[in-house]
């Protein structure tokens, strides 16, 4: 079956994009668009927010309401948009450094509130834009520009992190499993609450080169070889899990969504605040004084 034309979602006048040959970011961006396309969302009712870094340049290429913000703060800008216009579908495109280092604070709090944001992390385990410094998802002992002898800082498992913080829909996939990404995007958007997609993508230019992986195709093959679905993962021993990672729908547990709770709080209080005759009397008195 031929793939549907998704060029209507792109600002083609902004092309060519800045991503390096072999970069996986285009695959992630395309998968997000295919998910949106399948849902048949009105382009004008979708807001795409991004931070700073390679991944965050995506917002500039997409023809929705877009807001390209500052490093680490995409989630806070997005929170403002969602609070003001809860009817919008709000998608946050971010990177591992953007959302879990400089913006890590916002990630846990947005998840805690269970506000209806759909976060797609382009997780390439490195700061690509500034030349390959290690990020909070760089595996232990891997080489980075700031870790020439191997990374000393244990990485975050972003799915576990957001689960603990309170996200209600969490999934992980890779650029090798591109069609799976679109399905998770659909379910994330359908989830009324904080949805978090950890998408493993390849940076052959910095991460691959420094860690002696020959090229982008080899990086994709590594994703294929090291990814395990939930069923396979569940029967692996701790030893067998070394160097492998789980992909799939990792968490799906709805609970009240923040903007809805907020609205119902307002409504409850408006009811309560119906002025009683006594309070009116008090107000008149205080004005006179």
């Amino acid at each position: 079956m031929a793939l549907r034309d998704i060029s209507k979602y792109l600002r083609l006048d902004k092309f060519p994009h800045i991503w390096c040959p072999g970069c996986g970011n285009g695959i992630v961006m395309q998968s997000v668009l295919r998910g949106i396309d399948k849902l048949g969302l009105d382009q004008n009712k979708v807001a795409v927010i991004s931070g700073i870094g390679c991944s965050s340049r995506a917002a500039g290429y997409l023809d929705f309401n877009t807001l390209h913000t500052t490093h680490g703060r995409a989630l806070t800008f997005a929170t403002g948009i969602k609070m003001a216009k809860p009817e919008l579908t709000v998608i946050v495109l971010t990177g591992d450094g953007d959302c879990s280092a400089i913006g890590g604070n916002h990630l846990i709090h947005a998840a805690r509130r269970n506000i209806d944001l759909n976060v797609v992390v382009f997780n390439n385990s490195i700061y690509g834009m500034t030349g390959g410094q290690f990020s909070p998802t760089t595996p232990l002992n891997d080489i980075a520009a700031t870790a020439p002898f191997g990374n000393l800082d244990p990485p975050f498992d972003l799915c576990e992190l957001t689960k603990a913080a309170g996200a209600t829909y969490i999934a992980r996939s890779t650029t090798y499993h591109a069609t799976q990404i679109s399905n998770f995007v659909i379910k994330a958007i359908q989830n009324k609450g904080f949805s978090f997609l950890d998408i493993i993508t390849q940076c052959p230019v910095y991460y691959g080169r420094m860690n002696k992986i020959k090229d982008a195709v080899d990086m994709l093959k590594e994703q294929r070889d090291n990814a395990r679905n939930i069923k396979q993962w569940s029967i692996l021993s701790d030893e067998e899990k070394q160097g492998k990672f789980v992909i799939g729908e990792l968490h799906n547990q709805p609970r009240p969504e923040y903007t809805e709770s907020y609205q119902s709080l307002i409504e409850r209080h408006i009811e309560k605040r119906q002025p009683s005759p006594k309070s009116e009397e008090r107000e008149t008195k205080s004005r006179e004084e």
Partner: peptide
């Protein structure tokens, strides 16, 4: 890291890695 100043501290971090300085280098999260 931040463009266009990243190189200043990146090059310096290489000096640290190469043992050319006695500096403790902290790669902070912001």
């Amino acid at each position: 890291p931040i463009t266009p100043a990243t190189e200043v501290v990146m090059i310096f971090s290489q000096f640290v890695a190469d043992g050319l300085v006695d500096t403790e280098y902290v790669a902070a999260e912001s």
